[in-house]
């Protein structure tokens, strides 16, 4: 899932200066799963914003809505009825959803209520870990199902750096596993350590952000 985290409250209070009717919009998909922008978080942030703004002598009307997905035009359209009644939208969706709302309602100020941070998995309740960097050149087949791009602090392609701790943790964070240690352990368990001796050439980064904004076209699906 795409994960995100609330922006600091003072930042939200600042960006809402001059606005009196605000719509806080959530997304019931990824950001709901990571407890940043689903219905619960929308209904939590709305009264919190009202109180924080009141402390600065500002009174705003806050409406709330949570769409099934903010990254699908059909769902974004549901805001068409309420949009004329507000002067700003705070979106708790990922950056994709925020941009979709801003594109559909260009006459309105649309602000991000979250920072989108990673493509991640819920490891346990309350803990999410990055798993994919959307690099455009997947190597998971060669690395025994572990992504060294997203899960190595240095995105190393050919083995660990010299900083792996003795307990298999990363040198930059004792709570993070060294992914190359994990890759080695899984390769060993499968009896295929020799596969790791193959030198991987530089990745083709041009298939993601490094090649300019990504555009995928499937002629068979187009209207």
């Amino acid at each position: 899932m795409i994960i995100a985290e609330w922006k600091p409250l003072p930042e939200l209070v600042e960006i809402l200066k001059g606005h009196t009717n605000v719509l806080v919009v959530g997304c019931a998909t990824c950001v709901a799963e990571c407890a940043a922008g689903g219905e619960r978080e929308v209904e939590t942030l709305a009264p919190l914003l009202q109180m924080a703004l009141k402390q600065e002598g500002r009174t705003i009307n806050v409406r709330t809505s949570t769409l099934e997905r903010q990254c699908e035009w059909e769902f974004v359209e549901e805001l068409a009825k309420v949009a004329p009644q507000v002067d700003a939208i705070v979106s708790l969706a990922c950056g994709i959803g925020i941009q979709a709302v801003a594109e559909r309602f260009p006459e309105l100020a649309v602000y991000p209520g979250v920072n989108t941070t990673a493509l991640a998995i819920r490891q346990e309740p309350g803990t999410w870990l990055a798993r994919c960097a959307a690099c455009g050149d997947c190597v998971l087949g060669e690395t025994f199902g572990f992504c060294p791009v997203a899960r190595c602090a240095k995105s190393l392609s050919n083995g660990p750096c010299g900083g792996t701790r003795k307990n298999g943790k990363c040198e930059i964070d004792e709570n993070i596993d060294c992914v190359w240690y994990q890759i080695y352990e899984r390769a060993k368990a499968r009896g295929k350590v020799e596969q790791l001796l193959k030198v991987r050439k530089p990745k083709n980064w041009s298939n993601s952000g490094h090649g300019g904004p990504k555009r995928v076209v499937r002629e068979d699906l187009r209207p």
Partner: peptide
Amino acid sequence: SLLDKAKM
């Protein structure tokens, strides 16, 4: 913690 951040 949220109430503190909102200065409430």
